[in-house]
Every structure is written in C-alpha cells, then in structure tokens.
Design a protein around this nucleic acid. Sequence first.
DNA 1: ATATACATTGACTAATCGGTACATGTTATT
DNA 2: AATAACATGTACCGATTAGTCAATGTATAT
Lengths: 187, 187
Amino acid sequence: MSASKRDELVQKALRIFYRDGFHATGMDKLVKETGISKTSMYNHFRTKEDLILAALRLRDELFRNRMYRRVEELADDPKGQLEALFTSLDEWFHSEEFKGCMFIKASGEYPVHGTPIHNISAEHKKLILSYVEEIATKAGAKEPNLLARQLMLLKEGAIVTAHIQGPDGIADDALSAAKVLIKEQLD
Amino acid sequence: MSASKRDELVQKALRIFYRDGFHATGMDKLVKETGISKTSMYNHFRTKEDLILAALRLRDELFRNRMYRRVEELADDPKGQLEALFTSLDEWFHSEEFKGCMFIKASGEYPVHGTPIHNISAEHKKLILSYVEEIATKAGAKEPNLLARQLMLLKEGAIVTAHIQGPDGIADDALSAAKVLIKEQLD
DNA sequence: ATATACATTGACTAATCGGTACATGTTATT
DNA sequence: AATAACATGTACCGATTAGTCAATGTATAT
C-alpha cells in the first residue's frame, strides 16, 4: 500500500529529525537510514519542508495523545491531573528517546514568524494550553486561563532545562512550583 | 590591530548566528555579510565550531552583563530584583533583535551532551541560576536554591513561549507566577 | 492477462558545505 | 629602506546540499 509506505517514511524521518536536527539531516542520510529511495520520498513530498511538516504533524498527534492518556491514567480528579502533567513530563525526561521538545527546536531552526514550520509549532503549544485550561476550569480555578498559561511556562522551562542540564529533579522543581500556583487559585 | 579585527568578526558572526541559526549559516555567508575574508577567519579560528564557541562566549558575557545591570537598575531590594528579572525579560522580548535564547537554540542544533557547545550552554544557565540564587538568599527565602530553580523554569519557559507565540503578555504571566512563588517563600 | 500505479536504482544537476593554497596587499617596527 | 606580521581576493578542494531524470521493477485491480 502506498499510504503505509508514506507513513513509514514519515515515522522514520520523524525519529531522525528529532535526533539530529533539521538542517543537519540531509535527504541522502534519510535515504541511507530509512532504506527508502529518494525518488519515492519526492513522490510523496514535493520538498524537504513538506516532509518536515508531515513529521511535525505526526509528532504533535503522538505526543499529545500519549500525554493526555498518561495524565488521565495517573489521576481522576482535575487537580490531580494538573499535577500529573509534571509526572508525565518526568517520565518523558528520563526515557531513552528524550532529546528536548521537537517544536522548540523546529522554531529555533526556522525562526521566521508566519513560516509553516513556525506556525505548526505555535499550534502545538496552543493545543496543549487549551487542554490544560480545560482541566484548570474543571478544577475550579479562579482564573483558569492564567493558571494554564503559568503551568505551561513551567512545562516549557522544564523541557528546555532537562534537555540542557539533564533530566534529574527538573520535573520535581516544576511540580513543586505548580502546586503553589494551583493552591493559590483553588483557595 | 589584530585583536580588534578578531573581536569585530566575533561580534558580527554572533549577530548572524543568532538571527539565522548555526547550520543555516555557512562560512561564505559570513564572508559576504561581515566583509571579512575567509582566510582571515581561518587565521583566527581553526574551525567553524571554534568561531561558534567564541560567539557563544561573547553572547554569555553581553547577555548576563546587560541583565544583571538592568535588574539592579530597576530595584534596590532583593525581592524587587527577583521581580525585576521578569521586567527585564519583557523589555528583551519586545526589543527588535529578540529571536529567542541563543543557548537553547545552540543546544537544540548540537544535541549531544558533553559537546563543547552543549557545555557552554549549560554553563550559561548555571551562571544565571547562581545569580538568582544569590538574590533569593538575600531576600530571605526559606529555600533560596529551590526558589531560584523555580524562577529559572519560569524564565526559560517565558523565553521559549515569547519566541514561538510572540512577546505580548508572556513576561507578565511569568511575573504573576513568580510573585506567588516568592510570597510563598518569604512568609 | 493486461493496464495502471507506485517503488526502485543510480546517475545527474547546480549550488553550497567547511576548509586550504597562493600570491598580493597593507601596516607597523626596526 | 627592509622586514615581519597580518589582511586580502581568488581560485580551488572533495564532500554534501536539495532536487530531477530516465529506465526498470513489481504489485494490485480490472
């Protein structure tokens, strides 16, 4: 099937782009590492950027699904779920494949605003923000959107710091801060 | 003078690397934009990586000097200085040259731990953390190192978010969270 | 069984990558 | 005036960049 070949390409390209970066990954490396011919790639995607966009879309889907599922696995009540966000982060930080946030790296390598790659990164962040805001509302926060934005800052900071300094203790710091912010809004 | 030529090169290279990224900036582009010949560059630096490291060292120096000076300009008391951190961030976010954190981008493009570029990024973050911790201690925080790490998470998150979503309101969110965390530690 | 659609290899393009060689300035010191 | 040190432009190196082309499988669908 053609669709599965395409999916296979996007999956493998995602892994390599995430591991090595975008500019540092040439099409010939993708050919060598995926075993998929260059002609086939360009049959499915007009340009390298189109392939990158497909990889980012897949990443967004996989990442959010995993995170949402894990958060809802870890806690039933909304307040517990807000805290579980950081537990799931901690698990991610300590997993083998952790190499920082793919969207932060993408918008770092493609810094021009309004660019498709930049837009998809912004969209990814907004979707997670909405999710957190929804939980914050259910939890009865006074200002759920403010709380959600604050927790997102802790999340982004934790991801970046875990990537630069190593994963240990980072999510705990974020969680301890999150608890204070949550308490402040639920009193 | 030879030293000033070298400094001129590092300053100009810094601007271009920060604006366009590292892999996306070739030596020929540097020649064209700096007006400095490639032979001269390789007379001062053995490799492109050496030039990148020099640019990052300069960036660290300039960035921390500016931030420390601005924080101490904005407030005399340590508690006010902790808050002024985020005011200075807001000014940076809204300045023309803001393109995110150069060290976050550097460790994104050179993801291997232990690499010189990765190390210098980690060092930069540690130096700012020490500075914040010092102020937190003076402010009388119960756990000044924890508070400093929490405020740093807000700072990194704010930088990344301002870069991806745009600068408006981000530092305010971080400041409002910071105030809650500071209050919690000073009671 | 034949047609259609897609995958494949491999050679190829023009441009750019990091880095070097060489010969010609330019400048300051002696 | 001569020398040493450094800056310069230009041309070049082999490798790699994104992307194309033509020719040859190979599978599925009618």
